[in-house]
Amino acid sequence: MSIPIYGLMAEFEKPDQLIHATEAAHAAGYRRMDAYTPFPIEEVSEAMHFHDDLVRRIVLVAAISGMITALTLQVLGSAVDYPLNIGGRPLLSWPAFLPITFELTILFAGIAAVLSVIVLNGLPQPYHPAFNAPNFERASIDRFFLCIESNDPQFDLSATRKFLEELHPVQVSEVEQ
């Protein structure tokens, strides 16, 4: 059965109401849902049992590749391609290579951290159905939203609406695709 809506959006006044609602929704078996808050609330993503370690892993890989890039660059530049005696120091002067190695490690890792959060979050995204919910402009200011999406296997328009309304929201509304 296909439902022509994106999901049901419940609006809450307080962060702890949202935390409680998210916990309840997860306990009731809903999985395809998302919460929208003006500021990060760790307990909400915990209540959704959402874990994503990908950012950390990407950053680690980027850091290591930055390190390798820097070492390769310096070894090739000062020992292989352009060997030059500087004050009698060895061509492979590891103590002198550490600063640049460190800087490029940080540079690569930092760029990876920012890019991975943007890409993994699917940004930039000019259109998203959530913005169709009434009063959603306050999701960035002082309201806390929970959306149970229609592609959740348990989603049933009336039952889910009833479930959400029992959680004392300000309002529950259907969100268009």
Partner: peptide, 18 residues
């Protein structure tokens, strides 16, 4: 197009602390 999704915030906080 930031919409304050809890999933987004989660990754965002990890990246920010990193």
């Amino acid at each position: 197009g930031w919409r304050g999704s809890a999933r987004h915030w989660n990754r965002y906080e990890i990246a920010y602390i990193l």
